[in-house]
Design a protein around this nucleic acid. Structure first.
Length: 202
DNA sequence: TAGGTGATCTTG
DNA sequence: AAGATCACCTAT
């Protein structure tokens, strides 16, 4: 397997976002923001399936200034502010016009740990620094200014494959979407079994 | 378990 | 146009 290969457009154009959410586990997010380079491996994701998913911002084809990003071609970053404080990082998938996205929920740090600890305003390294969608965004320096950026072309934020082989994947329900009725029961949250850098077990 | 915080959208 | 909502986190 080729290593340190940047993920290409075709990966993100996967029409099955539930499949893509699992394939992104083990891939590495690279950011070069404010002059600091960081790398972190994706350990936990959630799938959001566009217009047919009650938990998705684009449910029933909802199109607003905010959700517009989700309709872009697969491979773009969808970043929005939640609860007034938290920047959440999603990867848009499928073709242009299909509003599917994968929410990145947790990462395991690889490079730039000093920088990430400083951004998180903590001294001690460990899973709690990166386990949670708002936490990893803060650690990697990701904020709303990167909303709509193309991960396939950007020099500031992109994904690579370092050849990590992911073993068992735990499949369970998504977090914080109780309003989504029966769709809240779908097992569309995924994490690498046995990995410590996960926001919530089972 | 409760409260902070602010952009977005409005009988969710 | 004010108020409800919200894919969360931190501290008691």
């Amino acid at each position: 397997m080729l290593q340190n290969k940047r993920l290409e457009r075709s990966i993100f154009q996967n029409p099955d976002v539930v499949d893509l959410a699992q394939r992104l586990l083990g891939k590495v997010i690279c950011t070069k923001i404010d002059g600091f380079y960081c790398e972190a491996m994706i350990t936990e994701t959630e799938a959001y399936a566009g217009e047919n998913d009650k938990a998705c911002h684009a449910y029933l084809g909802k199109f607003t200034k905010r959700t517009a990003t989700m309709y872009k071609e697969g491979g773009h970053a969808y970043i929005y502010l939640c609860y007034g404080i938290h920047h959440l990082f999603n990867i848009v998938s499928n073709v242009k016009g299909k509003a599917d996205a994968v929410l990145i929920r947790s990462v395991e740090p690889l490079l730039g740990i000093e920088t990430m600890l400083r951004r998180r305003k903590v001294i001690k390294n460990g899973p709690k620094v990166y386990a949670g969608p708002a936490k990893l965004s803060q650690a990697l320096g990701i904020d709303k200014s990167l909303n709509g950026v193309d991960l396939v072309n950007s020099e500031n934020i992109y994904l690579i494959d370092k050849g990590k082989v992911v073993g068992d994947i735990v499949k369970t329900t998504r977090i914080g979407i109780d309003y989504a009725g029966e769709d809240a029961l779908l097992a569309w949250r995924f994490y690498i079994s046995g990995n410590k850098y996960v926001s919530k077990y089972i």
